[in-house]
Computed example of a mutant assay.
Amino acid sequence: MSQGLVFNETLYPGVEVKYECDNILFQDRSEHQDLVLFTNPVFGKVLMLDGVTQVTTGDEFIYHEMMSHVPILAHGDAREVLIIGGGDCGMAEEALKHASIERLTQVEIDDAVVSFSKEHFGDFNAAVFEDDRFDLVIDDGARFVAETDRRFDVVMVDSTDPMGPGAVLFTEEFYRAVHRCLKPGGVLVTQNGVPFLQRDELLDSIRRFSAIYADASAYVAAIPTYFGGHMALGWATDNAELRKVSLETLEQRFEAAGLDTRYYTPEVHRAAFALPRFIRDIVEEGRKA
């Protein structure tokens, strides 16, 4: 037991988030990052990389459902899906609930993250490793999209914030490489932080999206772990109609997919693109740059 121990996240200047720790389950320094997994009385198992919260068993379903079901159901005929990062495999678990997906490729730079996630997060990712459609590639995600000759309907970037190994996944060069390996009408979604505290992260991504894709935008989700209000999820595609899929169509696709969700609904999907004014202003500024 680790009674009295706390872990502090200091990602946001001027703000500190403190997690009480009941027990440290795993702690190590891999080739790429410092990793710790511990239990918290509110969020359950908490994974931190380099001192930044990545996922908790308490609220992982919100982030993973919104990052996967929104682009897949908006697309309507996704067969080939690519995940960059996402070593906890929660996003893969949600995406593979869609029987229409023929292959899901996940490119993760750190095999240590996948190995311990398989061991410690089996309550939400066990099905992934038993699914023949799951193709795990241990490689640098930026290199993979720059070199692959494969093409994808949906690309989801489940990255850390733009620092350390994750910084390259926020560059224009990376977004251009993703565009190259998207099929016509394909869509890219990204994690873009909490705009109230990380305004520039979203602004910079929208600017870079706008230089490459016909439609650059974002949608939002409320995720308790990511302190500071709405989290922004970046959206980039050459098909502007994907953001405008009707509620009726989304309901039909959702029912046909037979999904069992805890946060995502077709109504939430539509509403997620109705941005609060201050977030919409960031998106509009990025588009004009």
Score class of each variant (00 low, 15 high):
S2H: 13
V6I: 15
N8G: 05
E9V: 03
T10P: 01
V15N: 05
V17H: 11
Y19N: 06
C21K: 03
I24R: 11
I24Y: 12
L25V: 14
L25I: 15
D28K: 15
R29T: 15
S30T: 15
E31H: 13
D34W: 01
V36R: 07
V36M: 12
L37M: 14
N40A: 07
L47I: 06
L47D: 08
L49G: 04
D50K: 12
T53C: 13
T56Q: 05
T57L: 07
T57S: 14
G58M: 09
H64F: 02
E65P: 11
M66T: 10
L73C: 13
R79C: 11
R79L: 12
L82V: 09
I84P: 02
G86K: 03
D88C: 04
G90C: 01
G90Q: 02
E94S: 09
K97Y: 07
H98G: 04
A99Q: 09
E102M: 11
R103P: 07
T105A: 05
T105K: 04
D110H: 14
D111R: 13
A112L: 15
F116G: 00
F116N: 01
H120W: 14
F121A: 03
F121W: 08
G122N: 13
F124R: 08
N125K: 05
V128Y: 02
V128N: 00
E130P: 01
D132G: 09
L136I: 08
D139K: 05
D139T: 00
D139I: 00
F152E: 03
V154A: 09
V155Q: 08
M156W: 01
M163D: 07
P165M: 03
T171R: 00
T171Q: 01
T171E: 06
T171Y: 00
E173V: 14
A177E: 10
A177K: 09
A177V: 02
V178H: 00
H179T: 08
K183S: 08
L188V: 11
V194S: 07
F196Q: 12
Q198A: 09
R199G: 04
E201T: 13
D204E: 15
S205E: 10
A211V: 06
I212Y: 03
Y213A: 02
D215S: 14
I223A: 05
P224G: 09
G228V: 01
G229A: 05
A232F: 06
A232K: 03
D238Q: 10
A240K: 14
L247H: 09
E248I: 07
L250Y: 04
E251H: 06
R253I: 05
E255F: 04
E255N: 13
A256N: 05
A256V: 01
G258A: 12
D260P: 11
D260Y: 13
R262V: 10
T265E: 09
P276D: 05
R277Y: 10
F278T: 07
I279C: 01
G286V: 00
K288P: 00
